[in-house]
């Protein structure tokens, strides 16, 4: 038992080290477009892990991710843009104090972005987490829409429909993968701890969980707030990565993309989320091709707008209809399963 833990720790360390080397290599050798895709993968994994914590492990069907992301993105952007830049940016109406003057380093800004999202998670969770299943989904969706309408209508805070442009692009691969790593470690720790067992127990049978002395509401609320925190972090990174945000960006579609990753990877599987996060981010980028016009020699093929989402939503339908458990179900890829696989191969030879 102890030996295995030590072995896993060493192997995980090696894996992280190897991945860091890969990032070094990528930074030097890959073009900007590929780097951008790698960045998006990291952010999407953060977002999907946080939704998987809320929905896959704690069983709360939330459709509010876009709202938490918006809160995170706006908070972070307001903090990392220098006051002078904000002065030039707010052309509808001047920015309100303290938004006009506040300024913080990127790390602090991202943490505060997460905290603001977590606070919003608690505020909305207090009333709606008592609702079960689909009603919770629709209520959290309502919350996200309200956030979007607010972003449109509070020009002194959000610059209204224009949003922000020229947000400092601090979110490079190191920041993104750093946060991705932190999210991963924390979520893994949580779900593998006895606290995680309690969360899963609430998901599986709330009545029995209460009989076991678990204050189910408080546990739900905590898990929801932690999930919201990382959704806020993901939103903050995304804002800095894209350098521009506006209310239109935080439509339900954004939540849908994250939900798609979680469902495709498997509800309650962390390795599944990571795999699906990579595949779906790449797929989404790759599908942009069908929307852009292509000229091959003499031939001009016009782009088909909307085709990307047609393919994408069909993919979701296929998964939910034919492989509901996603890629991994609730299973995980661990060192044990990896070794078992090698051993089997060895025997076959």
């Amino acid at each position: 038992m102890e030996d295995k833990r030590k072995r896993n720790l060493i192997l995980n360390g090696l894996l992280v080290g190897a991945f860091a080397l890969f990032l070094f290599w990528a930074q030097v050798n890959l073009d900007g477009y590929k780097i951008q895709i790698m960045n998006l993968i990291a952010v999407n994994i953060i977002l999907a892990l946080s939704l998987n914590l809320i929905y896959g492990f704690a069983g709360m069907f939330s459709l509010g991710h876009a709202g938490f992301m918006a809160i995170g993105a706006y908070t972070c952007a307001l903090l990392i843009m220098p006051p002078l830049q904000k002065q030039a940016l707010f052309i509808l109406e001047p920015a309100m104090w303290p938004f006009s003057v506040m300024h913080a380093p990127f790390l602090v800004a991202v943490i505060l972005a997460g905290l603001m999202a977590a606070l919003a998670g608690i505020l909305i969770g207090l009333p709606v987490l008592r609702l079960g299943g689909d009603y919770l989904g629709i209520a959290t969706l309502g919350f996200a829409e309200i956030i979007r309408v607010l972003a449109n209508n509070l020009p002194r805070m959000t610059n209204g429909a224009l949003g922000f442009k020229g947000i400092p692009d601090y979110a490079n691969i190191w920041w993104n993968y750093g946060w991705c790593f932190i999210t991963l470690v924390i979520v893994v720790r949580l779900v593998n701890s006895n606290y995680g067992n309690a969360l899963k127990a609430i998901r599986d049978d709330e009545v029995a969980a209460r009989a076991m002395g678990i204050n189910t509401f408080r546990y739900r609320l905590t898990a929801f707030a932690i999930g919201s925190f990382f959704a806020g972090v993901g939103g903050a990174l995304l804002g800095s990565l894209l350098t521009t945000i506006d209310p239109k960006m935080f439509l339900f579609l954004l939540t849908f993309n994250v939900l798609m990753i979680v469902v495709a990877g498997g509800l309650g599987s962390i390795t599944g989320t990571i795999i699906a996060g990579v595949i779906i981010t790449v797929l989404l980028e790759w599908l942009r091709i069908v929307e852009n016009p292509i000229t091959i020699g003499e031939f001009y093929i016009p782009g088909i707008p909307g085709m990307r989402m047609v393919v994408f939503s069909l993919a979701l339908l296929f998964i939910i209809l034919f492989r509901r458990q996603g890629i991994m179900g609730r299973k995980e890829i661990t060192w044990d399963t990896v070794f078992a696989l090698f051993r089997k191969r060895g025997v076959e030879k």
């Binding site: 579609l253 849908f256 939900l259 088909i304 707008p305 909307g306 085709m307 990307r308 989402m309 047609v310 994408f312 939503s313 069909l314 979701l316 339908l317 939910i320 209809l321």
Partner: peptide
């Protein structure tokens, strides 16, 4: 599934 259908029809309409 219904969310999937919703996005599918919406984007099919765009296409």
């Amino acid at each position: 599934s219904s969310i999937g259908v919703s996005f599918f029809l919406q984007n099919l309409a765009i296409v």
